[in-house]
Amino acid sequence: MKKIKVSTSKLYDSMEKRGITFNNHTKQQAIIIMEHTNYYYKLSSFRKNFEKNKAGKYINCDFENLIDLATIDMHVRNYLLQMSLSIEHFIKTEISRLITVSKIENGYDIVYEYEQRYTDYFDATMDKFEMTRYQKDMLKKRGQDLPIWVLMEHMDYSALCKLVTLYYFKYNKVLSLEKAHNLMISSRYIRNACAHNSTFILEWFNHSHMIKNNPSGIKSTIIDLELIQYRKYAKVNDMVATFILLKSYASEGTIQHFYTSGKDLLKRWKNYHTYENIPKIKKMYDILEKLVDFLEK
C-alpha cells in the first residue's frame, strides 16, 4: 500500500512522536535543514542506530545527533571509496606487471580469452570505452585490436574481478593474485555502496545482513583483530576484506596515507559526541579503529 506524501512539517512531528528530541533546533530550523541541507529519508535513517524504550520511542536520540552522523557517514564513505579506488589501481598495476614480465603473454591474447570467457563484461567495458568523453583517441588509434593495458583502463570493479579470476586460474593460482581473487568480491560491495552514496554507518549488525562463510584468507585477520564475534556480518566482513587488500597491494606511502587519514576520520567521529552510551555506534567506531590500526602493523 502506497503511503501518502506528507509535508516536512509533518515529518518533523513524526520524528518527535518517535522520541527524537530537538534540544538545539527549533521546528523551523529543523525544517530548513531537511529541505535545503539534508533530506528527511537519509537523516532519519540514522535513528536506527539508537535503542528504543518499552514505549517504542528512541533513547538519547537528538536531531543534532542525526546531523552529526550524516556528516560522519559522508567522511566514512569518502574514505572507503578512495581506498577502493587505490586498491583497484594497485591490482591493475600487479596484473600489468605479471603480463609485462611473462614470457608467454603478449598482452593481446589475454584480451581475446577475456572476451570469450566473460563476453558480457567485455562488451560492457567496450561500450563504456566507445562512449568515453575524454579517451576516445585511445580506441580510435587501436580499433578493436586492444592490449590488456588499454582495456583495463575502462574496466569497472566487477569486470576487473573477472580478469583477476581468469589470470589467477590460467597460471595455476598465481600467488600474487590470491588475495585479490579471494577478497575482491567482498570489497566490491564496499566500493559500490560508497560510490552510490548509500548510507553506510547503518545496519552493520542486522541479522538479515549476514553471510554463511567468510572468503578464504580473511578469518585469521578477523581473529587477530579480535572481531570474531562480528565475522558473519556482511559489512564487517567486506570492510575487513577491503583493508586486507589495501595492505596487500598498495605502496607503503599509500598505506601510510590511509592510516593517517583514518586516524583523522576517527578523531572527527568523536569531535562533537563520543556516542559511548550508544552501543551500535560505539561498536562501529571500535571496529573501524581496529581496521585503521591494522594498517600500521
Rank of each mutant, 00 (worst) to 15 (best):
K2P: 02
K3W: 15
I4F: 05
I4S: 14
I4D: 01
S7P: 02
S7F: 15
Y12N: 06
M15L: 15
K17C: 12
I20V: 08
F22T: 04
N24M: 08
N24P: 01
K27C: 11
K27E: 10
Q29I: 12
Q29T: 05
I32N: 15
T37A: 14
N38M: 03
Y40S: 09
Y41K: 04
K42W: 02
S44T: 13
F46Y: 12
N49P: 02
F50C: 05
F50P: 00
E51K: 11
K57I: 11
Y58N: 04
I59M: 15
N60Y: 14
C61S: 06
D68L: 05
L69N: 00
H75A: 01
H75T: 02
V76C: 14
L80G: 03
L80P: 00
M83I: 06
M83H: 08
S86E: 09
E88S: 07
F90C: 03
E94H: 12
I95G: 00
I95C: 07
S96I: 09
I104T: 14
I110D: 01
I110C: 02
Y112S: 12
E113S: 06
Q116E: 14
R117E: 09
R117W: 07
D127C: 10
M131Q: 08
Q135M: 10
D137A: 02
K140T: 11
R142M: 01
D145C: 07
V150W: 10
H154R: 04
H154E: 02
M155I: 05
Y157G: 00
A159G: 13
L166T: 05
K170F: 03
N172Y: 15
L175I: 15
L177T: 11
E178M: 11
A180R: 09
A180K: 09
N182F: 15
M184S: 10
M184R: 12
S186E: 03
S187L: 01
Y189D: 08
I190G: 00
R191F: 04
C194M: 07
S198G: 07
S198K: 05
T199N: 09
I201W: 11
E203D: 12
F205G: 03
H207K: 14
S208E: 08
H209R: 13
M210H: 09
I211Q: 08
N213A: 13
N213T: 13
S216W: 06
S220T: 09
S220A: 10
I223K: 04
I223C: 13
I223Y: 13
D224C: 03
D224Q: 11
K232S: 13
Y233I: 03
M239H: 13
F243H: 06
F243C: 10
I244K: 13
I244V: 06
S248D: 06
S251A: 09
S251W: 02
T254G: 07
T254H: 14
Q256D: 12
F258H: 06
F258A: 00
Y259F: 15
S261L: 06
K263H: 12
R268A: 03
W269P: 00
W269L: 00
N271P: 01
Y272K: 06
Y275I: 01
Y275E: 08
I281A: 10
I281T: 01
K283I: 15
M284R: 07
D286Q: 08
L291A: 01
F294E: 02
L295Y: 10
